[in-house]
């Protein structure tokens, strides 16, 4: 049996999520035996032509060219997995969705006329059908291996839509919000990181994005009680995955 092919694609992003693949040091050799890495330009310039069995897509769509290219990637991929906050929610660059891109363009670039960009940064799912989403900035190594291992034996990956708090408590951590008054987005943030930040006595800043139907209004009231200003609350909800701030009143 020939091993399935894996391709890695990059759109507007920092490469951190792709690097998680290389960070799977202990498993990398086994992975290279289980799949044929057909396209992964971070690791090798050799590119085999498609179609591909699994595509990992990093980054958001911010240019007209990217909006075209993602359709080609979809057409060549049997299973498409989007990885990271950029690909699943638009990423930090989606802050532009709340601002004037023309103004950024003229301020940031010496020759703004050469910059072709869209007014918004959008997740991959806004353009093509997506099979699985891995959240996080960056993604979690274990979750990446889970999706790939599940694909290889043909089972559904375990990516529960629960709060970071459930992981925090299972891990036996002491809640930073209750015990220290430190603001934490864990109650409305999608699990997957294993409560990384609270393990270091820091509040979660929401890099895995919202759970289904987050109660932003109730958490906003609690963040105020923790002493966060309205501006800081806005920033907390918008930075990584722009939680739907309009519901926060």
């Amino acid at each position: 049996m020939t091993p399935p092919t894996l391709a890695v694609w990059k759109f507007t992003s920092c490469d951190g999520c792709q690097l998680t693949l290389l960070d799977c040091e202990d498993e990398l050799l086994t992975l290279a035996g289980a799949v044929r890495i057909a396209r992964f330009t971070e690791a090798s310039s050799a590119i085999s032509p498609g179609p591909y069995d699994v595509s990992l897509v990093e980054g958001s769509i911010t240019t007209p060219e990217e909006a075209e290219r993602i359709r080609e990637v979809r057409a060549q991929s049997r299973v498409l997995v989007v990885i990271g906050a950029c690909a699943t929610a638009g990423g930090i660059q989606a802050l532009r969705n709340f601002a004037d891109v023309e103004e950024f363009r003229s301020l940031v670039y010496a020759s703004p006329q050469h910059i072709g960009t869209l007014a918004t940064s959008t997740p991959i799912s806004a353009h093509v059908a997506v099979d699985y989403e891995l959240r996080g900035c960056p993604i979690d190594r274990r979750q990446l291996l889970e999706v790939l291992s599940a694909f290889l034996v043909g089972r559904k990956p375990d990516l529960p839509d629960a709060s970071v708090c459930t992981e925090c408590k299972r891990r036996g951590l002491t809640c930073v919000m209750v015990a220290d008054g430190t603001p934490c987005l864990g109650p409305v943030t999608h699990a997957g990181c294993g409560a990384l930040c609270p393990a270091y006595r820091r509040g979660c800043f929401g890099c895995f994005g919202p759970v289904q139907d987050p109660n932003i209004a109730a958490l906003t009231a609690q963040l105020r009680a923790c002493g966060l200003s309205e501006e800081a609350i806005d920033r907390a909800f918008r930075t990584f995955t722009h939680f739907r701030q309009e519901t926060a009143t």
Binding site: A34, S149, D158, P187, V211, A218, L219
Partner: peptide
């Protein structure tokens, strides 16, 4: 429901809440 975050902390800290679920794990070799 207007106040509840549905975060699950109450059930996790409760000394009698017992519910569990299972997850299946396979490795890369299968």
């Amino acid at each position: 429901a207007e106040r509840c975050l549905t975060c699950g902390n109450c059930t996790m800290v409760c000394p009698t809440c017992f519910c569990t679920t299972t997850e299946d794990v396979t490795d890369l070799t299968g």
